[in-house]
Amino acid sequence: MLKGKTIKRLKKVEMLEIMSKQAEEIDRLRQTIDELESQLADKQVKLAEVGSIAEASLRLTNIFEEAQKAADIYLENIRRQGER
């Protein structure tokens, strides 16, 4: 970019061009950062939702297991009463 010139030998116009290009690159990088942060936030929300779904699934499984145990006990009690 400097083509062998040192910074001290650059003309004001050349310095302004370099600074302008750097400002454009900074803006482009900031936009990229914003986009990546947005994507990261979306992925974090999705991971949280997956965790919530997994927890809900486990709770439902436990509820169904407890309901099955209660039904088994109920049927066993009915069977015992029928034997009497």
Rank of each mutant, 00 (worst) to 15 (best):
I63P: 01
K5M: 05
R59N: 04
L36I: 08
K12A: 11
L16P: 00
E66F: 01
F64H: 12
E14D: 05
I63T: 13
M15E: 08
R59Y: 01
L58V: 02
R28E: 13
Y74S: 11
I33R: 13
Q81I: 02
R79V: 02
Q31C: 10
E65C: 03
R9L: 12
A54G: 02
E25V: 05
K69R: 14
L58S: 10
Q81P: 00
R80T: 05
R59S: 03
E24G: 02
Q22K: 14
L75K: 07
Q44L: 13
K5C: 04
A70E: 09
L58N: 14
K12H: 10
K8R: 15
L29V: 06
K5N: 08
E55D: 11
G82P: 00
G51R: 09
K46T: 05
V45T: 14
L75T: 02
E65P: 01
K12D: 13
D72F: 01
Q22H: 12
L2N: 03
A48M: 09
E76Q: 07
N77V: 00
E66C: 00
K21A: 09
L75S: 04
L29T: 02
T61K: 13
N77A: 05
Q81A: 09
K12I: 09
R84I: 14
E17G: 08
D72C: 02
E49G: 08
Q31M: 13
E49S: 13
G4R: 04
R59E: 05
R79Y: 04
E17C: 06
I33G: 01
K46I: 05
E83I: 02
L10A: 00
E49K: 15
A71E: 10
Q22D: 07
K5Q: 11
K11F: 04
E25L: 14
L36Y: 04
A54D: 11
L58E: 14
L10K: 01
Q81T: 03
L10Q: 01
L36D: 03
I78D: 00
K5H: 08
E55H: 08
S52A: 15
R80F: 05
S57A: 08
T32L: 15
E55Q: 13
I18W: 04
Y74K: 10
L75I: 08
I78N: 00
R9V: 14
Q22G: 10
E14K: 07
I33L: 15
